[in-house]
Design a protein around this nucleic acid. Structure first.
Length: 1124
RNA sequence: AGUCUCAUAGCUCAGUUGGUUAGAGCGCUACACUGAUAAUGUAGAGGUCCGCAGUUCAAAUCUGCGUGGGACUACCA
C-alpha cells in the first residue's frame, strides 16, 4: 500500500504522532538551521510569568505568533524563537507573601530578604512545566531549552547597561512627587500600571461637603469682596476622600469663577450659617424655589430650608483669606507645616462641573494639589503612613487604615467617623454615598492612593517626539490600536517612574552619597566589580563595609554571585573620596520585559554579532492589554537607545470571552482549560476555529460547537478527500513522478480549473498573511476545500478515477488531486501544523527516498521544511474560473427545478433550453454544457434566440451609469424602463439608444446604460437567477424512463456491494427475474450497467436461492448478486 | 465623566468606491443524492441592516444626535 488508509479522522491521535515525529527528527531545529542566517525574520516572545496556569487566551496569542513564524519559515526566512520567562515583580511577591502569611512589613524582620527572595525565585517557575506542556501540545514552536530568564545575572547586567545608557543621556532623575501608590502592595505604581484594563472600578465612597470657617480676623476681607456685612462665613468644599481632610492645608478657588455668599442654616445643627460656593453650583446644593429675598424671611423646619444671597465675588478677590483648621489634632497644627497654611489660594484647574467650585487641598495626596500648593508657598501634611494608616496623634483616627487594606472582618471606614465628627461640630453641610470610578492596584485589587514619594524617573517626556515619530513606522494590526490607543497615550506621555519599594526585582544600579551630589550608575557586572575594587582601594570604608565588599567580590569569584537584594545593598562604593550607598529600590518589572531584545542575548556583553540579526523585531504579537505594557516599554527603551522602533509589525489580539460574550472567570465556571480542550478536540481544530472565526483583534466568543464545526467541515472534508484519493491511488498504484507528468496545457479543463483556483487561493493566502490577516487566509482555504475541491472537482471527477484502464485522463486526475492536496497541506500548515503534516506525510512518504535521490519537490521530510515558492500566474485563468462559476450556478438552478418537480437526479431528462441574447453568451454556455449535463443528468442543451419568440426579456436601468445623468428623474425613468414591453426593448436594442421624457425633461439613453436580460419562458418550467434563465424539459420518453430504471438498478447493486463489504474491484454476476419491462431495460443498458457495477454477466434466472426484492421506480423485481 | 470602537438572520460572521432581490456557515424543517458515506446537495422558514434625523436621484454603506455593548482615558476636589 502506497498511501496509508485510515479508519476515521482522529485529530488528537494524529497530533500526538506528529509531535513524536517532530521531536524524533528535530524538525523545529531543522526548520531554523535549513534557512540562512543572514535572512532572518525576527520574532520576539513576550515573556509570560510562570507563576500562574495558562488559559485559553494564551492559546489565542500563541497561535497567532506561531502562524507567522511558520509562514515566514516556509518563505525561506530563518526564524529563531527564543522563549523567555518574566520572573520578577509584584505578582510573584504577593503570591509569596500570601503563601508565607506575611505582609511587606515583615520582610527583613520575620524573614530575611535573602530567604524571601529565594522563595520568590522558586515560586516564579512553579508552573513552568505546565506552560511548556501547553506550548508543546498546541504546536507552538518555541525554543524552550534556551529561554531567557529575567532573574539571571546576565539578564540583569544587560538591564543595568541600558539604564546606564539612559543615565548617560541625562534622561534619569530622582524626584519627590505625588504618585499613585498602593499601600496594600507597599509600592508606588507607574502610570502604565495604573492604566492596565480593569484598574478603574466603580466604588461607593462617603462624600462630604465640609464647612471651613473663615477666621474672624479675615471676615472683613470677605465682606469687602462680597460687599456684605456678616459676622461668620464658611467655605463649602466637596471631597470624596474624607480621610485626606486631616491633611488639608489650603482651599483652592478658581480665580475667575464667580462665588456667592449665601445666608442659610446648617442642615444638621439647624443653626444659621453663611456659606461661600460657586454661583454656578448653587442650585446643586440649594433648591432655587426656596430662595428668599431678605434675611427676615429665612426659615428652617423639617421640610424647608430657605436661603438668601448676601453677595457676589470672584475667586481672586478671596485669595489669602484664612480659615480655621477643619480637623485639628495634636500633630497637624500650623507648626507642623513648612510654609503657609489654612488659607485660600487660586488655581486654574478648578472647574464648576462638580462639587462646590472650592477644592479641598491636601498637597500630599494629590498631584494638582501639590502643584498648586508649591506655587503658592503652601506647606503640606502627610497624616497617613506608607502602610495606608493614620499616624499617631490624630485622636480617634490614630492607627486606623484609611481603606480596608487588610481584609479586616470588622473594618470600619474612618470616612464615616469623620463625617459624624463634622456633623456634630456643625462643620458638615452635606454627607452622602457617592459612586465614582477609582483606580485600583492591578495586583492587590485594593484602592490606590496618591502619596508623596522619592522615586527615580526616566524623562520619557523629553523623547516624546521621537516616540511619536517611531510609532508611525510600526505596522499595527489593527491600525486603530497604534494610532488611537497607543498614539494618544504617547501624546500624553508622563515620565516613567522606575522605582519600586520592593525586594524581588532588578536592583536600581545607582549609588548615591548620603549628602552631596555624588552618584554612580553602574553599567554591568564587571563594571560593578571594578567599582568595588576601587572602593576597597580607597581606604575610606569601615572594616565592616570592607568585609561586605570583599565578600561580594569573592562570591563572584566562586561563580556564586547574585546581583539581587540583599547582597547588592551591602556594597559600598566610593566616588571622589565620598562613600556612596545604593538606592534601595528595585526597578519596575515592565522595564525587565521591555529590555528583552538586548538582555535576552546578554547584549552588549556577549552575542554582539547575533544581536545585529536579532534587532529590531519584524513581528511581535500579544494581547491588546499590552499596549501600555510590553508594547510601550519595548518601544520606549528602543527609542531611547537606538531611536528606532523595537518592532516593525505588531498584532494585538482581543479578549477571549465565553460563548455568551461574558468574561471567563473561575467564579462563573465558564473557563476553558486548554490542557483539557486540546487533547479532546485537537489543537488544530482549536487553532483553526480561533483564527477563522473572527479577526484576532476582535473579542472572541469561544464556543466549543464552533470547534466541532471546524473539525467536521474543514478537517473532515479534507480527510474524506484524502481517503477517496488513497483508495483509488492504491488500486492503480499511482505515484507522482516528477519527471513524467502530464503537461498543464494538456490536462482537461476541469483540472486546469481547479489548478487555477488553487493558485488563486495560494495568492490570496499569501496576500492575507503578508498583511497579517490570518483570518482571511483561513476563510479562503475553508471555501476552497469545501466548495471547489470537494463539492465540485472531486464530485465531477469521480468517474475518472473509477475507470479500469490507466489513461492519460486518469493520470491527469490523480496528478491534479495530488497537487491540490499537497498544496493545501502547505497553505494550511502555518495555522494547522499537525493535520497538514499528517496529510503531507501520508501523500509523500512513499516517494521520499526517490525524491531525495532526485532532489525533487517532495524531498523534504516535513511540510514545515518545504519552500513556499512563487505563484505561477500563468496557471491562473480568470476566464475559466468565471465559466465554471456559471456552470455551478446553472447546475444549482437545474437541481432546484428538479427538486420542485420531485424528479430524482438519477432520472435522466432530455434537454435544457437556454435563451441566448448574443453569440458571446452562446459561446459561454457551450463551453460548459458538458459539465452541466453530467452534473445534472440531462442529455442535451438547446439554445433558442430571440427570433424563436419563446422567451421574454426584461430591462432594468443601470443605476450606476444613469444615476449621475438623470439626477432627480432617476426613479421615474427606472420605472419606465422596467415597464417596457418586448417591442420597446427590441427597439432599443436595434437603435442602440432611445429618447425618454420625464417631467418635461428629455434624455437620450444609450443601450449600455440599460441592462437587458432574459427573464421568463412562458409555458416552460423556468428558473431565473443573476440574469441567467433556463427552461427544463421534463417530459419523459420510454428511453429516458428505461435509463432511469437502469440507473436505479445500478444504485441498488452498488448499495448491495457496499453492504456486503465487497472490494471496490471485485467482479460480480447478476441474475434477475425475467419480466417484459426489465428485459427491455437490461437489453438496452446491459453494457452500461455492467461497466458501472463491474458485472461480468447479467442473466435472467428462474431459480434464485435468496433473491433481493427491489422496487425500481414503478417496477418490482427480484435479483441475485454473486461475487466472482 | 470624556474619547475611541462596535451594533446586519436564533448563533458566528461577510457585505468592495453609496447603485435597487442584503449574503455565507451553523442551527431548525422537509426532500434528495451517494464506490468519499460519522460526508454531501436542494429547498423552506428566519431581517425594522439598533433608533431618529440629515446629505443624496439613490444609504446597511456617508454625516449628526440618541440607545446599547466593549475598550480606553481621567487623582477633576
Amino acid at each position: 500500500m502506497i498511501y496509508k488508509e485510515f479508519k476515521g479522522l482522529n485529530l488528537p491521535e494524529i497530533e500526538s504522532e506528529v509531535l513524536q515525529f517532530w521531536e524524533r527528527e528535530a524538525i523545529f531545529q531543522k526548520s531554523i538551521d535549513s534557512r540562512p542566517e543572514d535572512n532572518a525574520y525576527v520574532f520576539y516572545e513576550g515573556p509570560p510569568s510562570a507563576n500562574g496556569l495558562p488559559g485559553i487566551h494564551h492559546v489565542v496569542g500563541r497561535a497567532i505568533k506561531d502562524i507567522f513564524c511558520r509562514y515566514k519559515t516556509l518563505q525561506g526566512y530563518r526564524v529563531e524563537r527564543k522563549g523567555g520567562w518574566d520572573t520578577h515583580g509584584l505578582p510573584v511577591e504577593l503570591k509569596v507573601e500570601q503563601e508565607l502569611g506575611i505582609t511587606k512589613e515583615d520582610i527583613g524582620k520575620k524573614i530575611t530578604v535573602e530567604e524571601y527572595n529565594n522563595k520568590c525565585r522558586e515560586t516564579v517557575m512553579q508552573f513552568k512545566s505546565e506552560w511548556d506542556d501547553l506550548t508543546r501540545i498546541m504546536g507552538f514552536w518555541l525554543d524552550l531549552d534556551h529561554p531567557y530568564m529575567t532573574f539571571e545575572n546576565g539578564y540583569i547586567e544587560s538591564v543595568w547597561y541600558i539604564i546606564s545608557e539612559i543615565y548617560k543621556k541625562n534622561l534619569m532623575y530622582k524626584g519627590y512627587t505625588i504618585q499613585p501608590y498602593s499601600p496594600a502592595a507597599g509600592t508606588g505604581l507607574s502610570t502604565h500600571e495604573l492604566n492596565q484594563p480593569g484598574s478603574y472600578r466603580d466604588v461607593t465612597d462617603t462624600s462630604i461637603v465640609a464647612c471651613f470657617e473663615v477666621k474672624s480676623c479675615c471676615i472683613n476681607k470677605v465682606n469687602a469682596a462680597f460687599k456684605s456685612n456678616i459676622e461668620t462665613a464658611h467655605f463649602l468644599a466637596w471631597t470624596t476622600t474624607p480621610w485626606t481632610l486631616p491633611s488639608n492645608t489650603a482651599l483652592t478657588l478658581g480665580p475667575k469663577i464667580e462665588y456667592v455668599l449665601v445666608t442659610s442654616f446648617n442642615p444638621y445643627t439647624k443653626s444659621p450659617q453663611n456659606f461661600i460656593l460657586a454661583k454656578e453650583l448653587l442650585a446643586k446644593w440649594f433648591k432655587p424655589e426656596q430662595e428668599v429675598s431678605s434675611i427676615d424671611e429665612l426659615v428652617i423646619d423639617e421640610k424647608t430650608m430657605t436661603y438668601c444671597i448676601a453677595g457676589l465675588a470672584v475667586g481672586s478677590e478671596l485669595k489669602g483669606v484664612e480659615y480655621n483648621q477643619l480637623l485639628p489634632f495634636e500633630v497637624n497644627g500650623a507648626n507642623a507645616i513648612e510654609g503657609k497654611s489654612f488659607q485660600v489660594i487660586t488655581g486654574d484647574f478648578v472647574t464648576t462641573t462638580d462639587g462646590t467650585g472650592i477644592v479641598h487641598t491636601a498637597p500630599s495626596f494629590g498631584a494638582d494639589d501639590s502643584k498648586v500648593a508649591k506655587e503658592n508657598g503652601v506647606g503640606s501634611l502627610t497624616m497617613v503612613d506608607s502602610e495606608g494608616k493614620f499616624i499617631d496623634g490624630l485622636g480617634f483616627l490614630s492607627g486606623r487604615f484609611v481603606k480596608d487594606y487588610r481584609n479586616e472582618a470588622d473594618y470600619k471606614s474612618p470616612d464615616v467617623d469623620i463625617a459624624i465628627e463634622l456633623k456634630t461640630k456643625g462643620l458638615a453641610f452635606n454627607v452622602q454615598k457617592y459612586v465614582h470610578s477609582y483606580p485600583h492596584c492591578w495586583r492587590t485589587d485594593k484602592p490606590v492612593i496618591y502619596y508623596p514619594m522619592d522615586s527615580w524617573f526616566i524623562r520619557t517626556t523629553a523623547v516624546k517626539e521621537q516616540l511619536i515619530t517611531n510609532n508611525k513606522k510600526i505596522n499595527w494590526k489593527p491600525e486603530s490600536t497604534g494610532t488611537g490607543r497607543f498614539g494618544h497615550w504617547l501624546e500624553n506621555i508622563q515620565d516613567w517612574n522606575l522605582s519600586r519599594s520592593r525586594f524581588w526585582g532588578i536592583p536600581l544600579p545607582i549609588w548615591v552619597a548620603e549628602e552631596g551630589d555624588e552618584q554612580i550608575c553602574v553599567s554591568g557586572q564587571q563594571d560593578l566589580l571594578n567599582h568595588i575594587a576601587l572602593a576597597l582601594a580607597s581606604n575610606l570604608l569601615s572594616a565592616e563595609e570592607k568585609a561586605e565588599n570583599e565578600k561580594f567580590i569573592q562570591a563572584f569569584g566562586a561563580s556564586q554571585g547574585d546581583l539581587h537584594k540583599p547582597y547588592i545593598d551591602r556594597v559600598t562604593l566610593v566616588a571622589n573620596g565620598i562613600k556612596l550607598k545604593r538606592e534601595t529600590d528595585v526597578i519596575d518589572v515592565w522595564f525587565d520585559s521591555g529590555s528583552m531584545p538586548y538582555a535576552q542575548w546578554n547584549y552588549p556583553f556577549s552575542n554582539q554579532e547575533k544581536f545585529k540579526h536579532a534587532y529590531p523585531a519584524d513581528f511581535i504579537a500579544e494581547g491588546v492589554d499590552q499596549t501600555r505594557g510590553w508594547f510601550y516599554t519595548l518601544h520606549t527603551i528602543s527609542t531611547i537607545l537606538f531611536d528606532q522602533p523595537a518592532f516593525k509589525n505588531v498584532v494585538s489580539n482581543g479578549l477571549v470571552l465565553d460563548k455568551n460574550g461574558e468574561k471567563m472567570s473561575k467564579r462563573k465556571g465558564n473557563v476553558i482549560n486548554p490542557m483539557e480542550a486540546i487533547p479532546k478536540h485537537g489543537a488544530d481544530a482549536i487553532r483553526w476555529y480561533i483564527i477563522s472565526n473572527s479577526a484576532p483583534w476582535e473579542n472572541l466568543k469561544f464556543d466549543m460547537n464552533g470547534v466541532e464545526e471546524v473539525k467536521r467541515k474543514l478537517f473532515g472534508t479534507l480527510y474524506n478527500t484524502y481517503s477517496f484519493f488513497s483508495l483509488y491511488a492504491n488500486i492503480d498504484a499511482f505515484q507522482w513522478d516528477d519527471k513524467n507528468t502530464i503537461p498543464h496545457t494538456e490536462k482537461p479543463e476541469l483540472d486546469r480549473w481547479i489548478i487555477s483556483k488553487l493558485n488563486t487561493l495560494k495568492k490570496d493566502v499569501q496576500e492575507a498573511l503578508e498583511s497579517y490577516e490570518p483570518t482571511d487566509a483561513a476563510r479562503s482555504i475553508d471555501t476552497f476545500v469545501d466548495r471547489n475541491l470537494s463539492n465540485w472537482y472531486v464530485r465531477l471527477s469521480r468517474r475518472r478515477f473509477w475507470k479500469n484502464d490507466v489513461s492519460a485522463d486518469k493520470k491527469a486526475a490523480y496528478e491534479t488531486l495530488y497537487e491540490c492536496l499537497t498544496t493545501i497541506a502547505q497553505l494550511m500548515s502555518p495555522i494547522a501544523p499537525f493535520f497538514s503534516e499528517w496529510l503531507y506525510q501520508s501523500l509523500t512518504l512513499s516517494i521520499r527516498d526517490k525524491a531525495i535521490a532526485e532532489n525533487s519537490r517532495w524531498r523534504h521530510s516535513s511540510i514545515h521544511l518545504t519552500s513556499w515558492g512563487s505563484i505561477d500566474e500563468s496557471w491562473i485563468d480568470e476566464n475559466l474560473e468565471h465559466r465554471i462559476e456559471r456552470a455551478q450556478d446553472l447546475s444549482s438552478m437545474i437541481l432546484s427545478l428538479r427538486k420542485k418537480e420531485q424528479i430524482k437526479v438519477r432520472q435522466p431528462l432530455q434537454k435544457v433550453i437556454i435563451p441566448i441574447l448574443n453569440d458571446k453568451e452562446k459561446d459561454l454556455y457551450q463551453s460548459i454544457e458538458d459539465i452541466v449535463m453530467a452534473e445534472v443528468n440531462v442529455k442535451d442543451f438547446e439554445y433558442v434566440d430571440e427570433n424563436s419568440g419563446l422567451f421574454v426579456k426584461s430591462a432594468k436601468a443601470n443605476f450606476k451609469l444613469l444615476g449621475k445623468k438623470l439626477g432627480k428623474d432617476m426613479a421615474d425613468i427606472a420605472k419606465i424602463i422596467a415597464n417596457w414591453n418586448q417591442e420597446q426593448i427590441g427597439l432599443v436594442e436595434k437603435q442602440g439608444k432611445i429618447d425618454i421624457i420625464s417631467e418635461g425633461r428629455s434624455y437620450e439613453l444609450l443601450l449600455e446604460e440599460i441592462e437587458i436580460a432574459t427573464s421568463d419562458m412562458p409555458g416552460y418550467l423556468v428558473a431565473s437567477e443573476n440574469g441567467m434563465t433556463l427552461a427544463l424539459d421534463i417530459s419523459l420518453s420510454e428511453d429516458l424512463l428505461d435509463e432511469g430504471i437502469a440507473r436505479e438498478l445500478i444504485n441498488k447493486v452498488q448499495n448491495y456491494r457496499k453492504d456486503q463489504n465487497f472490494n471496490v474491484t471485485d467482479r460480480i454476476s447478476i441474475s434477475y427475474a425475467s419480466e417484459m419491462n426489465l428485459d427491455r431495460v437490461i437489453k438496452k443498458f446491459s453494457n452500461f450497467i455492467s461497466t458501472e457495477v463491474l458485472a461480468n454477466e447479467i442473466k435472467p434466472s428462474a431459480t434464485m436461492a435468496a433473491p433481493l426484492e427491489l422496487e425500481l421506480n414503478e417496477l418490482n423485481t427480484k435479483i441475485e448478486i454473486y461475487k466472482l
